[in-house]
Amino acid sequence: MKITKAILFSTLSLMLAFSAQAQCKRFTKKYCLPTLTPFVYNGQLTSALMAPGESAEIMMTFTPGHDYRLLFCGQEVIGEVMFKIMDKNRKVLYERRKPEQKSYFDFNVTTTQQFIVEVYIPNKETPNEIVPTGCVTLMVGYKD
């Protein structure tokens, strides 16, 4: 019976992971993409399922000649998505620490810059044993 339970458990995990990926795409298309306007989406999407207390780092390069928007989106279930923009030496250039702050960062660069973007979901109290996870997306838009 334990084996049966383990198989069912693993199968369900796998199936739901695939399902979540598809849901993540729909969520991004419906809730994140419109917020990128008037910037042109650069076609590169970074998304992951995250839980409160988790963080991710994205190594990114930006070139002169454009204005950029880095847009962060997260599903309500996990709470607000916070982020830090750091240079390659981890000097913080911008940080979103409070929900009142914008969930995007508009900028341009005078020389090609390498950024470390840290995305994190603050810990949150849950009334039961269930740990919420949700889709977190980072989109890059640019314009002349």
Partner: peptide, 26 residues
């Protein structure tokens, strides 16, 4: 819909959540 699905995922991922940091390259 996502919220419903997330709850299902959460129920099965509780034991596998590790505090490791994900790294992406762009």
């Amino acid at each position: 819909t996502d919220t419903t699905v997330n709850k299902e995922i959460s129920a099965v991922t509780k034991v596998r959540i590790e505090k490791t940091q994900k790294i992406f390259y762009s």
